[in-house]
Design a protein around this nucleic acid. Sequence first.
DNA 1: GATGAATGAGAATTCATTCAT
DNA 2: CATGAATGAATTCTCATTCAT
Lengths: 207, 207, 207, 207
Amino acid sequence: MHPDKKQTIIEAAMELFADKGFEGTSIRELAAKAGVNIAMVNYYFGSKEKLFEAMVEEKSTYFRERLNSILIDESKNELQKIDTIIEDYVNRITSQHKYHRVIHQELMLQQRESLHENIIAVFAKNKEVLKKIIDQGVKKKVFRKVDPELTIVTLFGTMHQALLSKSMCKFLIAKDANFDPYTDEAFKKRLINHIKQVMHAHLSHQP
Amino acid sequence: MHPDKKQTIIEAAMELFADKGFEGTSIRELAAKAGVNIAMVNYYFGSKEKLFEAMVEEKSTYFRERLNSILIDESKNELQKIDTIIEDYVNRITSQHKYHRVIHQELMLQQRESLHENIIAVFAKNKEVLKKIIDQGVKKKVFRKVDPELTIVTLFGTMHQALLSKSMCKFLIAKDANFDPYTDEAFKKRLINHIKQVMHAHLSHQP
Amino acid sequence: MHPDKKQTIIEAAMELFADKGFEGTSIRELAAKAGVNIAMVNYYFGSKEKLFEAMVEEKSTYFRERLNSILIDESKNELQKIDTIIEDYVNRITSQHKYHRVIHQELMLQQRESLHENIIAVFAKNKEVLKKIIDQGVKKKVFRKVDPELTIVTLFGTMHQALLSKSMCKFLIAKDANFDPYTDEAFKKRLINHIKQVMHAHLSHQP
Amino acid sequence: MHPDKKQTIIEAAMELFADKGFEGTSIRELAAKAGVNIAMVNYYFGSKEKLFEAMVEEKSTYFRERLNSILIDESKNELQKIDTIIEDYVNRITSQHKYHRVIHQELMLQQRESLHENIIAVFAKNKEVLKKIIDQGVKKKVFRKVDPELTIVTLFGTMHQALLSKSMCKFLIAKDANFDPYTDEAFKKRLINHIKQVMHAHLSHQP
DNA sequence: GATGAATGAGAATTCATTCAT
DNA sequence: CATGAATGAATTCTCATTCAT
């Protein structure tokens, strides 16, 4: 029964931290949402901050183990690998947008900066994989030389900008108010196509 | 002395809100930073939230009045206009990064959502200007047809991702620790070049 | 222009103190209601408490000078004098109900007790007049011997109980909601008749 | 330990609200008087206002359940019932004078008016019982026809006027200063006799 | 292990008052 | 004379955390 409750708390925390921020979320409402006793958070995690760290750690562990499979997939050429990464990312972010929102917020604040290292490490690893793919493409002369760090920044940045704010989503989709942008397949497709188009153009040799 | 103090408070607020978030900033420390009495915030603005609104309003007013000059500049062709916008944006965001950070955070939270409208409106106006430029380019057959909303999303998204987090900046620049990324001209140039490259490739006809 | 502003403040104070109590009224709203500067209250009266005292003093001075005329009126017998007093009181309280409410409240609290003396003195004087009338009636054998203090307590108590609470008024009148009980002549007449009836029965010899 | 502390707080609140009014009482001193932590009031009751409501509710519940026993007592005739009610009321008010003071104050203010309904309901029920007794007496031709609402107003009003203000009590008793009027049996008897006399005269047929 | 009660520190805000002009 | 700005003290209330059971 331990891990279940811990998990319930973490899920509730992610939900609330994403919507209200870390400081904007009180342990009281967090416990209420998770359906556990107020004292449980400190009991299990030691403090509100430690809970936050646990949440980040758990989720980032989950994300760390991806991507390599794409890298070594020999059935795809470099451009196809890029396409797969784009699709993969968009799907990840839409399905886990609350978590990405929390991370994104956290990275902008100058508090709990010890966590930044952790987050940046994940980002760095992703960059490395992408860099390897690009380097292969360059070696094979199918790609031109680009800035690998900033290329992944454009990749992530576009997705984050498009997906992490509900208000922004609504503006971009321009449809009736209260529907969930994160399950709208048409928008996901539109976004994937756009990023592919940008990346193809960016990576391919110019005329 | 009236407007000065108000301004001092707003500046201190922006600084702290950017670094610690709205809820993470207490009026106490805000007043201390601004060098005013603790009661002044409520005296001038009525509440912490109203101060926040005042800050957003003031700054967004400032940003609303740009961009049109670029649109109507007849000495530039469409691609040059895009380039100018990119340079303009990067300069703006680096010089006002704290403000952009606050706005960016705010847009992700589901609190004080009444402000989102205001913020999105500024974004929408920027998009309109960009769209006009793109449309002109398309009509003149120098640009291909692209998704205008998502194109500006990529533009903003890349900059925000690269600039709004200090940790991200440091990772990207990969230089010694405590130097200020927002005054590093080399990095700015690198970023501008990257975005220009991406945009040129994206907008121009493919081979 | 002095006395006018002072008067305006006193009137506003009476209004607000009656509805919200002394502590429940802030100088800010008081000044707003009176249409004067916030600093005027302290400027004219020295403090909020002194304003209160000034208000009580002024109004009680006004009420102190009544009643003697009734006492010495030779055209009326004792019962007629009692009747006149009842009518006079009911009219006074209805027309000055806010003030009476303030006084009544004040007398119940154990704060600013120095004012109680003042208020009780007015009450005492009223009692003295009534006592003289009753004593005359007793001497003429038209009244029986009664407790003069408690008789005036019944007199005042009935009126206060009936008139000083709007909710109580509404309950007693049992009419449609938002009308002003203090201008309802029918209710005033009903109240006067009741008190006269009570007093006549109380003072006259029993069968 | 739960109900005890709640009760302690309620008792302290009644004490202080009676002496200083609701707004004149701070949670700080309330907690100090009750000997509990300053946060307990909000912990138990949610807010100062809710504490007030809880106090009123609890006490009014207590008073709601009386009186009917007198109504159905077949061993007493109507006048005896009235006498019993008078004695009962005077005893109640003297023993619970703080509570009655709070209620009485509250009814005069135009704040927290939602509570008025509650209070008036208790008053209304008392009136109904009294009205039934009077109606019986009228039917048996031992009473004359009177205004039942205002008759109970006189009953309550006299007691409130005599008992709810310490200063008024002292004036009426005219004895040495610091003794407690609420335990002075002589004064209670005097008051009871006066009210009985008034009510007998008021209700019986006139000569 | 698990929890409801309890708490001290600190939050935002409002207050009556003062003071420079 | 009169006032808007300014302030320190005090307000209610919420917070994360602890502790006895």
